[in-house]
């Protein structure tokens, strides 16, 4: 099926990004019940799930072209959003292979890959790219493999080397992150880059998650959802750009909350990579305004209830303090107290 792209949308300045009704219905809504509960919530990343966002291992949607352009803008301003330590070259090629194979298989109208031994021919019709290259020879691509394929993907990518019974974030392309910095976190161990997350360390969450991921198997990826809230449909909420987006948090009023407050969901997927034994972490970001969310009454009711039960540490960590009450008040008008159905799928 051909996706109707919306190439002119923007994620900055005039913020013309909007979700079509179809894009709203495929949103990976993260809350399965009416109260907030922290859980490791890792599950097999298999095709199929509550919405169409789960139909493929790497999801492409109507925002693809606009998001790739936004990524290019971020990289032009700050090339350090894509970095790889020297020992990660094999993992970069693994990533390129995994992504090209999946995109060309799942979206043959838009992508194709022809392999003749190590001579590869990649076509990305959505972005108008055609490339002949030699797999394993970085000199035959215009840039390193991670950057090459990362520029053609929705969502951030990080690559973790496995050694010392730990995972090290030794490479990544990160342009649409929820307030963490690749330049700062590059080279860190699992517990170090999760350092700023409150509550979970004490509950042993990261110990268990690390143990699980060290045994992640080839061909058996896993996923989890994470979420926060962002003012305006802004992809780049990095610490680097905090001076640009931080002030937005003070601008929310009862009148504009519906259009400007966005639920930001990350569909995070983890893959064991074959040649490098590294782990690919995909962080696919979805944005939806409260107004768009409220077209699915179950979701606006539930978000209202979840926001009310969020622990104060998480309100602070997720940066919601300045506008949570306004968002709750906006949602309260759309919560008639009716019961919601089990699960995250729209009614």
């Amino acid at each position: 099926m051909t996706i109707a792209f919306k190439p002119d949308e923007t994620y900055r300045d005039d913020f013309t990004f909007r979700n079509s009704p179809a894009a709203i219905r495929r949103f990976p809504f993260p809350f399965g019940e009416d109260v907030y509960r922290y859980a490791v919530n890792i599950e097999p990343h298999v095709r199929g799930g509550p919405t169409a966002a789960y139909d493929n291992l790497f999801d492409i949607d109507e925002h693809y072209i606009a998001e790739c352009r936004e990524r290019a803008l971020v990289l032009a301003h700050d090339p350090k959003r894509c970095q790889a330590l020297p020992h990660m070259m094999a993992a970069q090629w693994d990533t390129l292979e995994l992504l090209m194979e999946n995109l060309s298989t799942d979206y043959p109208e838009h992508f194709s890959l022809v392999r003749d031994g190590n001579a590869w021919h990649w076509t990305n019709r959505a972005l108008g790219i055609e490339q002949h290259f030699v797999f394993g020879d970085a000199g035959t691509l215009p840039c390193e493999p991670l950057e090459y394929i990362g520029r053609q993907m929705q969502g951030d990518l990080t690559l973790q080397d496995q050694r010392e019974d730990n995972l090290f974030m030794d490479a990544g392309m990160v342009t649409c992150q929820a307030d963490w910095s690749l330049e700062f976190d590059l080279g860190m161990k699992f517990h170090e880059w999760h350092g700023p997350v409150p509550l979970a360390h004490e509950q042993g969450v990261f110990d268990r998650a690390l143990k699980f991921l060290l045994n992640l198997q080839l061909g058996r990826p896993v996923r989890r959802l994470n979420w926060t809230m962002t003012i305006n449909p802004r992809m780049d909420t990095s610490p680097e750009q905090y001076p640009q987006w931080g002030p937005d948090r003070t601008t929310i009023t009862p009148e504009n909350a519906g259009s400007r407050v966005h639920l930001r969901v990350e569909l995070q997927s983890l893959f064991r990579l074959p040649r490098s034994n590294a782990i690919l972490f995909g962080i696919r970001c979805y944005l939806i305004s409260l107004e768009e969310l409220a077209t699915i009454p179950k979701w606006s009711r539930r978000l209202h209830r979840v926001l009310q039960t969020l622990p104060p540490e998480l309100v602070e960590y997720k940066g919601l303090s300045r506008f949570r009450d306004t968002a709750i008040a906006w949602l309260a008008q759309r919560d008639d107290g009716a019961p919601t159905s089990v699960g995250t799928a729209p009614d």
Partner: peptide, 8 residues
């Protein structure tokens, strides 16, 4: 066959 890393 699936690609692999040395030691697998």
């Amino acid at each position: 066959l699936p690609a692999f890393s040395a030691g697998a």
